[in-house]
Nucleic acid binder design. Structure first.
Lengths: 151, 151
DNA sequence: TTTGACTGATTTGATATTCAAAGTATCAGT
DNA sequence: ACTGATACTTTGAATATCAAATCAGTCAAA
């Protein structure tokens, strides 16, 4: 299977896509009203989300960074007015994170951009074909999970 | 189209995939015999490739980094024995880059990893379905190119 | 043929991100 | 009230990056 030209092409395209997406997310951000955010900070906001008030360590795990790294990043985001901290009542060691109004605005803007991208991704495909694409993504996620396991 | 659950799912999965792939490439590298390379350095080696002896500025453009950034990176890779420089005969300002034997080994190892990933990506699909997946990737590339244009 | 503008690469100083390790505060069980 | 574990914070070092200044080689016009 390995040497077939189409496999080679998909390899090249997949590589190009996953590296370029991060880059265009960055430039998209710089054109928006949220110019004071880096791509890293945007992803932190994304990982906090709208509804759950996750703990600091949960967000760190989600982003695959150390707790220390997250603390530093959150300090910036609080200073810039995108994120609030709350100490849990029942256990004062725990810090719950939540988005400010500005943070929620940012979150929704980023989601809208993603939605646009996904719409394009499956453009021109019917229902069955879209399911097939989802299946291919599931394959990739399984591969990733496997790699994570025998780490 | 936007709110359908399957679109939402694809959005989430796509986002997860393109962020995680970079991360597992990194950890894969750390488990290999090329532990002294960072993911950035690996991508630089990838951008140099096996055959073309590209100029320094061509590689910088390919990686979307400044010339100065590339110069610094190449210095490391030369020191570590993965890359050689050659001054072009006809214009001594130009630096052509090429991989050493060690660099080529690294390049092929990375390609093999990618091949494994792509095999998994299209696992269980027939010829037509694989073409459909390629088409979806083309859609994404078109989206990216568009974003790059009205930069 | 000399000089001035240009081009490709390098160096430098500043900023971002990250991790590991050490430190602080709080909790839960004895 | 100790003790050990847990949740987070701080700090110091390493890496990656850019913009701007610099260096070196080329080319063309005077």
């Amino acid at each position: 299977m390995a040497q077939r030209p189409i496999m080679k092409r998909i390899n090249t395209k997949l590589e190009k896509v996953y590296r370029d997406i991060l880059r265009i997310e960055e430039t998209e951000l710089q054109k928006s009203q949220f110019r004071d955010l880096s791509i890293t900070e945007m992803h932190t906001i994304d990982a906090i989300g709208l509804h759950q008030k996750p703990t600091s360590s949960a967000v760190a795990a989600r982003l695959h960074v150390t707790q220390g790294t997250l603390t530093v990043g959150i300090k910036q985001l609080v200073r810039k007015g995108y994120v609030d901290r709350e100490h849990a009542d029942d256990d004062k060691r725990i810090v719950n994170l939540l988005l400010t109004r500005k943070g929620r605005l940012m979150y929704r803007a980023h989601q809208a951009f993603h939605q646009q991208m996904v719409d394009r991704f499956v453009q021109g495909f019917n229902e069955d074909e879209i399911h097939l694409i989802e299946h291919a993504l599931d394959n990739l996620m399984a591969f990733i999970a496997e790699q994570d396991q025998h780490l």
